[in-house]
Design a protein around this nucleic acid. Structure first.
Lengths: 130, 130
DNA sequence: TACTAAGTAATAACCATTCTTGTCAAGTAT
DNA sequence: ATACTTGACAAGAATGGTTATTACTTAGTA
């Protein structure tokens, strides 16, 4: 267990911002100036295999990581890409006629919306423009 | 309306394979050797703005396009990335306490599984290995 | 010490996507 | 009808996120 790896794990522990690899890299490079982005990816991959983090694909073009192992869904702001957790359990089972021969192994529910601060910003802009 | 654009639209019409931009490009380049991948992207973007196609983010790292305007969900094979449509309506509303100030604008339900042909392949392999 | 294995950093490579720019066609004014 | 303007378009270049490769370092071990 190297200092870099420990720092990444500590940064993730309890983090609810669902950071990307670049976010983590950016947050830790000050304390670990020699750490490379590849190390972050490697560590995240290792943590993912251990089940310590979950890789989210809610944000196209960027992997986001979630250290919360409890099953839950996500809500993403379409403006600022902030992601928050949603702890509501939806009963989602497909009727046999709809599985089309697939063996279902999981599902995912994502909500999209506009977060408070983005919504406030827009209001401010609108007011200024009037 | 250029021939390329018409060909892309025709290829998509009635297509239930949820092709990626590269899929479309690969399918049409023989008939339109001078067409570029960027043209496919441009056309898909234009069609998306018109509401003629929907962009799926079920497949990380690749945009997939769906010409079916009817609201529905998707089921993807985690092996071969095949995507099929799921026409089941789930009532998904977040209780006020869970929206965290977000103005919800949409949601998405994706199912993941292993399709019949991938499942059969695996069985064959297992048998051979025994 | 020498050997091994794991971890790291740096860089290059890769792929999907987006940006930029030159070209062409249609419309408009002279 | 001709020159000018505008806008759409395709092609190639560029970008950004991610992965692969390589060599170096460190720790553990015989």
């Amino acid at each position: 267990m190297t200092p870099q790896r420990m720092a990444i794990m500590k940064y993730l522990d309890g983090n609810t911002c669902h950071p990307s690899a670049a976010d983590i890299y950016g947050a830790l490079r000050e304390r670990f100036p020699t750490m490379s982005l590849a190390t972050v990816y490697n560590t995240l991959e290792a943590l993912k295999e251990k089940g310590a983090v979950i890789e989210l694909s809610i944000d196209r073009g960027k992997k986001r990581f979630d250290p919360n192992p409890e099953p839950h869904h996500h809500l993403m702001c379409i403006r600022c890409k902030a992601i928050v957790d949603v702890f509501v359990d939806f009963p989602l089972t497909l009727p046999d006629g709809q599985t089309q021969g697939f063996e279902i192994v999981g599902n995912r529910v994502d909500f999209y919306g506009i977060c408070k601060s983005c919504s406030d910003e827009q209001k401010g802009t609108t007011e200024r423009n009037q």
